[in-house]
Design a binder for these strands. Structure first.
Lengths: 147, 147
DNA sequence: GTTATAAATTGTAATGATTACAAAAATGAA
DNA sequence: TTCATTTTTGTAATCATTACAATTTATAAC
């Protein structure tokens, strides 16, 4: 029997459970998000799927992602103002973006809290944390140069 | 004798100290940021200053803001992908944006920490926290409607 | 003060991600 | 099959931001 670690094996069933009709495009996009785990832009998804779905339009990718966000299947990650990235793991976690190579990673937040008197009277619906810097790879390269 | 609470009274002197030549536009933009405290977009600043500086161009506002960010005088706040907002207070704090009225406020972080095994090997240069929800005003209005 | 040089400012055009919208295709129920 | 609904597509619009070249202003040397 197969096992899994927090990733829905049955993407069609998962989408149905989220009240999203599992069209080919939607299944492919969700499959991409889940298995690539690379926090892609809409354009990255489009380019990756255009091969297997020759008639795919970019608008469809945008539509699909919008419906995912609306249904809580995916979330938008806004770090740069020039691009929105997408993530399927919607539990509370942060994101790290490398300012050199542009890669985005999840950040499991072992300890994380925001407390502030300024929140008095407000109703919080979302909170986001993102960190910028050099990823392990780019940091290594940088250090070599400085020897 | 005058007193102040963390806001530079002498904007010209402050800019000089930050190695930025205090041209009229730069002084006006910084003055606006400091005294309005409204986390404006470039366009909001442009509209506000176009009256007193009739020849002002939007490009100049963008140039000015870019030089401020570069010098560490201001920071960019990226919550929506459709706009960049600016803040002059560069100590560590978060931001709150009301999803109803769009206002942005500072969030003094009484307790705030990010710890994560995922940060191993990385070099962090910036970290950002933003919270979305209903501001006090919009929250009150919402509650009244639901009585 | 004039002149030369650099810096600041401006206006216009380009960029590029996202959205609007209407037509075409696919789906599903009667 | 037929009709209505949903999905998908392609093109055009939007809009913040940037690129860039021209103009203006400031600065310093003479």
């Amino acid at each position: 029997m197969k096992t899994t670690v927090g990733v829905p094996l049955d993407i069609v069933g998962y989408l149905k459970g989220m009240k999203i009709k599992p069209s080919l495009i939607r299944v492919k996009v969700l499959d991409y998000l889940i298995h690539k785990r690379n926090h892609p832009t809409a354009d990255m998804i489009f380019k990756a799927l255009a091969g297997e779905i020759p008639t795919l339009s970019k608008t469809s990718v945008y539509n699909t992602l919008k419906s995912f966000v609306l249904a809580g299947v995916a979330q938008e990650i806004k770090i740069e103002n020039t691009e929105v990235r997408y993530d399927v793991f919607t539990n509370v976690h942060g994101h790290f973006k490398c300012t050199v190579c542009g890669s985005v990673e999840d950040l499991k937040l072992d300890a994380y809290n925001i407390t502030s008197d300024d929140l008095e009277g407000k109703k919080i619906t979302e909170h986001h944390v993102y960190v910028l810097g050099f990823c392990s790879n780019c940091n290594k390269k940088k250090n070599k140069k400085n020897i």
